[in-house]
Amino acid sequence: MDDLVGRFLNGERRALARIISRVENETAEGREYLRALFPHSGKTHTVGITGGPGSGKSTLTGALAAEYRRRGKRVGIVAVDPSSPFSQGAILGDRIRMQDLALDEGVYVRSMASRGALGGLAPTIDDVVSIMDAFGFDYVLIETVGAGQDEVEIAGTALTTILVNNPGTGDDIQALKAGIIEIADILVVNKADHPGADLLVSQLQALLSLAPAGARRPPILKTTAIKGEGLEKLAGSIVAHREHLVSSGGLDRARAIDARHQVLAIARAILLEKIRRSYPEAELEALVQRVAARELDPHTAAEELAGAVS
């Protein structure tokens, strides 16, 4: 480990960028950096921003960051876009919507490709967020891949999760379904200058009124991110949610749950790697061929594979 850690701790953005790359590429060196910097993390407030493709996540993320800058806060942004399932390449285009922040020294924007992860994030997202946390940002905003109904991973990564909705995108039964709507700490109706915004707000309100008594009801806020409208209220609502987490003991609970989730996920990856290393590729190929030919069921095959390291 060169002097990158020292430069990082001195606030040098180039060192931050380089360390993130090493962590993202899951190198041994990256793990060393994470080990050195992890103790410096845990101070930032992480905010997840999720919602469908085209719902305005990037614009909202940029506008929220601008609001934080007006409040004198330093902001890190991680924006995830999908990797191609065929070439593993990606077009990362979220910066386009954040041009106003391009030269602001108090803002750092990093684009990440999903690299095959399911759930709207990237395999190393938690580690990358920890690194940004350690750098000393007051807020780290995490923008997911355009998410549909079931991409709930963000709730395990961010302390406050914002679900971005738009007017005119489905009736109230969509919102009644299980899944992504359940993880929202704050519901945002973005593009609120479009027709149907108030109708969507009242549908969401009606839906939330069905929640059991005593359950926290997420606030519903209208924004028109492209015009910078509604951001002050949103920023205030995030502060209120953090205060709620602190006073209810939810912050410690959330951290413990996230840590558990992270440790188990990493252990799973290590075990899989061990299995792959102790089970020759040719034999694996023969095994899966038998499953493909219906000679063997997939559970028996997986037991056989897992037996290689037990």
Partner: peptide
């Protein structure tokens, strides 16, 4: 992208 690179496009 099709060649497997991660391309940051800024407009």
């Amino acid at each position: 992208r099709d060649g497997g690179c991660e391309v940051i496009y800024t407009g």
